[in-house]
């Protein structure tokens, strides 16, 4: 039995925006990513899986217990979620917030206190534990949210854009911390950063306009869709040319050429011959971001 089974979930917000439509996912042990640009439905999906947002249709099963049906208590015991802009009592300290959440999750007060102290050490907030959360920086709040999601030692951790807004060094630190404290738990996280997903996830679902457009292991997806480096050309003045029979992928004023037997000089010459103004050219290595662009014709961010 899969750890989490998501079957045909749909969600339309009250303003009429269809956030998620007929999405089905399966998660077992490991680290999973939901990747897509803002508004693609990944946060809505995570919130539905984590028990924060009720779907209009569909089922979420956590180790056999329905997240939105009769077994919701058992299902919620098994999941910890750190949503974006995690809500805390701003006038309480970090440790008080964690103990409160621990009690909500059914821990005894002594156990909640013990877990809170351990997690505050783990996420590097020990020295700030007695400060009010209102004085925490964005990064500190994010680390507190991760601690909150782990307070009841769940099997499954859901993290919505855990490294969003962090510089590369902080992001690496956060992930090494996550990998260390989450151990062998199932982690599901969302991101619009292809590099982060490639680097840390074992399996990825690509989201576009509320639907899953592709899924698989990051390496396998890259090899399937974008096995070669890409030349990205910023141009003006007309239609970009084909190069050695290779059609470019055009997005706005950029054209992408797969450098599969095509050299960069060939691309430059083709533009020169066509008489187009070439503003800039960039060579990028195969990546999940390029896979997403190849599949959807849109950029991740």
């Amino acid at each position: 039995m899969p750890t989490i089974q998501v079957l045909n979930i749909s969600k339309t917000y009250r303003n009429g925006v269809k956030a998620v439509e007929d999405v089905s996912l399966v998660f077992n042990e490991g680290i999973y990513a939901l990747m897509g640009p803002n508004g693609s439905g990944k946060t809505t999906t995570l919130n539905i899986i984590g028990g924060v947002l009720k779907p209009d249709k569909g089922e979420v099963s956590i180790q056999g217990y329905s997240m939105w049906g009769d077994g919701y208590i058992e299902a919620r015991k098994r999941v910890g979620i750190a949503i974006q802009d995690m809500p805390f009592f701003n006038y309480l300290t970090g440790i008080d917030n964690l103990i409160y959440i621990g009690l909500l999750r059914g821990l005894s007060i002594s156990e909640a206190g013990r877990r809170a102290r351990k997690l505050l050490r783990d996420v590097g907030l020990w020295n700030s534990r007695r400060r009010r959360v209102s004085s925490y920086s964005g990064g500190m709040r994010r680390r507190l949210a991760i601690a909150a999601s782990l307070i009841h030692d769940p099997d499954i951790i859901i993290l919505d854009e855990p490294a969003s807004g962090l510089d590369p060094k902080s992001r690496e630190e956060l992930w090494s911390l996550l990998l260390e404290i989450c151990g062998d738990k199932t982690i599901i996280f969302s991101s619009h950063d292809g590099y982060e997903v490639e680097r840390f996830s074992q399996y990825v679902y690509l989201f576009h306009r509320g639907r899953v457009v592709e899924e698989g292991e990051p390496r396998e997806l890259i090899e399937r869709y974008v096995p070669h480096p890409q030349a990205i050309v910023w141009f003006e003045g007309g239609e970009p040319p084909d190069v050695d029979g290779v059609k470019p992928l055009v997005i706005g004023s950029t054209a992408r050429y797969s450098l599969d037997g095509v050299e960069v000089d060939d691309v430059l010459n083709a533009f020169r011959v066509r008489g187009l103004t070439l503003r800039k050219i960039e060579i990028v290595e195969p990546s999940l971001s390029e896979v997403f662009i190849r599949l959807t014709g849109e950029e991740l961010s």
Binding site: Y91, L92, T93, I99, Y100, L103, G106
Partner: peptide
Amino acid sequence: MTILWQLLSEIYAYVKALLKS
């Protein structure tokens, strides 16, 4: 027992608020 501790959750938040706010 779980429910008993959960019953304590709002009291805990309140008492802490009383001390902090």
